[in-house]
Design a binder for these strands. Sequence first.
RNA 1: GCCAAAGUGGCGGAACUGGUAGACGCGCUGGACUCAAAAUCCAGUGAGUGAAUAACUCGUGUGGGUUCGAUUCCCAUCUUUGGUACCA
Length: 805
Amino acid sequence: MKYEFPAIEKKWHSRWQADKTFKTGDDASKPKYYVLDMFPYPSGSGLHVGHLEGYTASDIIARYKRSRGYNVLHPMGWDAFGLPAEQFAIKTGTHPKLTTEQNIRNFKETLQAMGFSYDWTREINTTDAQYYKWTQWIFSQLYDRGLAYMSEVDVNWCVELKAVLANEEVEEKITDGYTVVRRPLRQWVLKITAYAERLLADLDELDWPENVKQMQRNWIGRSEGVEIDFELPCHKKNLRVYTTRPDTLFGATYLVISPEHPLAEKLATAQQLVEVKQYIRQAKLKTELERTGLQKEKTGVFTGSYAINPATGKPLPVWISDFVLISYGTGAIMSVPAHDSRDWEFAKQYNLSIIEVIKSQHDVQEQVFEDKNSVCVNSSNDEISLDGLSFSDAFERMASWLERKQVGERKVNYKLRDWIFSRQRYWGEPIPIKHYDDGTVRLETNLPLELPEVEAYHPSETGESPLANITEWLYGSDEHGAFRRETNTMPQWAGSCWYYLRFIDPENHQHLIDSEQERYWMNVDLYIGGAEHAVLHLLYARFWHKVLFDLGVVSTKEPFRKLFNQGMILGEDNEKMSKSRGNVIPADHVLTRYGADAVRLYEMFLGPLEQVKPWNTNGIEGISRFLGKVWRLVYPTLDGAATELSSAPMPEGLLRRMHKTIKKVGEDTENLKFNTAISEMMVFVNELQKAGCNNREAIETLLVLLAPYAPHITEELWEAIGRNTSISKQSFPSYDSTLVEDSMLTIAVQINGKLRGTFTAPAKSSKEHLLAEARHVESARKFLEEKTIIREIVVVDKLVNFAVK
RNA sequence: GCCAAAGUGGCGGAACUGGUAGACGCGCUGGACUCAAAAUCCAGUGAGUGAAUAACUCGUGUGGGUUCGAUUCCCAUCUUUGGUACCA
C-alpha cells in the first residue's frame, strides 16, 4: 500500500473529532498538565510556517504528557480585538466582526489541518461579549481598588487627522507631512507601579528564560537612591532632586530641572524670563522621540536662580533642560559632571564647573570618570567626611547624614510607569464607566456593556472614539442622574491578560472562574510563545494575575510557571518573513504538498526550538523520506498488505538501540529538544530498515515514540498492525537501563592528546586491561618508539592517553 | 553607549559533568534497479599534501592561557542577532 497522506490525515481528523479523543480529562485523581500557546490575533494574511512552530511544539508536549498519564489542558482561542480589523473597516466599511469571523475560520482550518490536539470545546474569543464581560469585570475590580484612574496624559496628537498616534506611527506621519504635537488628553491609567516590587521579586521563582526575566527587571528598573532638598534662597520652597549617587553630593556643581517642572518658570529671574519661556514652549512642541530618542546635543537654559548645596553650603546655578524627564524621580537632578557623562557633556557645553570627588585615574576636566570602584575625595565639611570611603559606605553615610539633618530621605524609584489603558478606538472592550452631569464617575454594573453598532469607524472630531457619535448608546440616565458613557475602549492587551484562566472554565456565567477548577489547573505549566512578548504582555498579565490573587479569584501568585520562547523562523533568504520581501511560506502551501506530519516534523527538525533559523523547503524532503521509510516498515510493497509482525526476540544490537531510543526520545521531548529526538528516531528507523526488522515490539515502540510528533501516520499504521484503540491512548514505553549502553565499546588511543588509533573492549573493562590493549594498537605504537612515557591517563569506556617526551 | 545570547563542513545543525569534532538531515558524486524517468536501495562526501580505501598536517570567529587532553573552562578581541535608549 502506498502512503497517501491527504486521505490518511483527513480520516484521522474526523475520527478524532467523532470520538472526542482530545477532550480534556476530568479525572481529578490524575496529575494535571496545562500547556498553553500564546493565542493568535487572527490576521487576514493567514498562518505561515513560522506561526506553526510554537503550536507544533506545544502539541507534541501535550500528546507526550498524555502518554505519561497526565490530564492535559491544551486549549486555543483568539485575541481578536485589534487595529487591523478596524482599519479594514475604515477602508471598506466591513464590520470588524465579520472580518474577524472569517479570519478565525481560516486560522482554525489550518490549525486543524495540522492535527493539533486542542480541546476545541474550550475555544474562546476575546471579542465575544460573554468573554469581555469578565474583562470588564476585572476592570471594575481594578477601579474599585483604586488601581484604575483618569489622568491627563500627553499623547501624540495629529492635528490634521484629529487622532492620537502610537509612538511608532509618529515618524511615519511626520514624513507624510502631518503635524504631530504632544497634547494632554484624558486617559484611563492602571496603577501597575503599585505592584512594581512584587512583579520584580516574584520573577526569581519562575522557570523562565533568564534573558526574559532580565528584560523585565530592566523594564521595572528599580533603583535605590536619595531625595535631597536644595534650599532656594529666593523662594520659600526647596528644590527636591533624586539621585542614586548621594556619595557625590560634594561634587554637585549645578542643578537641572525638567521644562515641565512646576518651578521651571517661577525660578526664572526677570532677566532670564523670556529665554526660559521660549525654551519651555519649544520643549512642548517636540515629540517624545525627538526629546529622548536620538543621541543628540543637549540643550538647556539658565533660570538665573541658585540653590544651596547642603553639603558645601555653596550656591549652585539651576538650569532647565529637556533631557531631564518630569515623569521620573522628582523631575529635577543634581549634576555631578566629574562622574556622570551626561552631566559632563552638559557642563562642557555651558561652561559649568567640574569638581572631582571620586579618586580618578585621569583629569576629570578632560574626561569623565564614571567608575564606581574608587574612593571619595574632596568630600568633607565640619560635620561629615566621605574621604576614602567606597561607594556603598559613602552612600550610607551621606544618606544618614541627610536624613538626620532632615534635608533628604532614602527613596526607591522604578522606571516602570503606570499603564495607559485607554484607546480612542471602536474595536475594543468598552470601558464600563458612566460620567454623570455632576462630574461624578460610576461603574456600569450591568455587564457586559456591549459594543454598539456604528455607521462609521473613523474617530470623532474631538479625538474621541467612534462611540462618541452613537448618541443612543452614549447617553442615558439612572437613579444617580443623567450620564454620558466612557467612549474610550481598552487596549488589545486587555483580553490577553487573563485568557489562560478562562480556558479552565469557559462557560461559567456566574464567575470568572470556578475556584475548585482554578486550584486544580493553575499554574500554566508550560507557556510557549514568541520573545516579542517578553515584556509587555507578560508583565501586564502578571500584574492582573496578582490583582486577582489579592481578590481571592486565583490561588497562585504567578500565572505561568515555565515560559519558553520559540525562535523565529526566517524566510529561505535568511531574512525575516514579510509580505514586502515576498519570502513568506504560507502554511497551506507546505501542508498540501507534504502533509501535516511532515510539516510538524520538519518544523521541529530545523534546529533547537529557541533558536532563530531559516526555513529551507528542500530540507523537508528528508522528512518525507523518513516518513516513507516508517511506512514501508509496515507496508513494504506498494500493492501488498501490512507485513506480518513477528514476536521472535530481536537481535541484541537492535534491542539495545531500541532502549537507547526510548531513553533519548523521552528525555529530549521532556526538555523540548525535539530536533535531536527526531534524529534519534531516524537512527532507529535506519537500523530497523537495514536489518529488515519486522519485530512487533520494535515497530510498536517506534510508532508510540513517534506519535506525538507525527500523529496521523502513526495512528494509521497502529491500526494497520491490528491495534484498535487510538495510539494517543498508549503509554510512553519505558527502557531497561542495562540495555541503553553498548556491551562493546570503541576505545580511543591518544598520544599527547592526539588520536592515533582505536580498539574495542567490553564495557567497564579495568584500567589495566585498557592500558595493556592500548599498548598493542599498531597505529599508535610507532609514536611510542624511542619516547619516554611520562604519564598514562585512562578514562574507562572512553580512551587511553599516553603523554610522551 | 548599555544589557543578553550566539559564532562548528557547501547548507540546517550534533557533541553527556573537559575525553575519538561534524550525529541526523539537505545538497553533491558514483553505483544498483529501469527501455527511460520518478521512487527506492548501496557507497562516498571538513580542508590540504598523496596514485592511494596508506600516511601525515591543519581544522569549531580571532589572539593568548589553564590542562595529559579544550567546540566545552579563563582572559582579551572581532562579528552577528535580540532588547533598551539621556530613568540621574
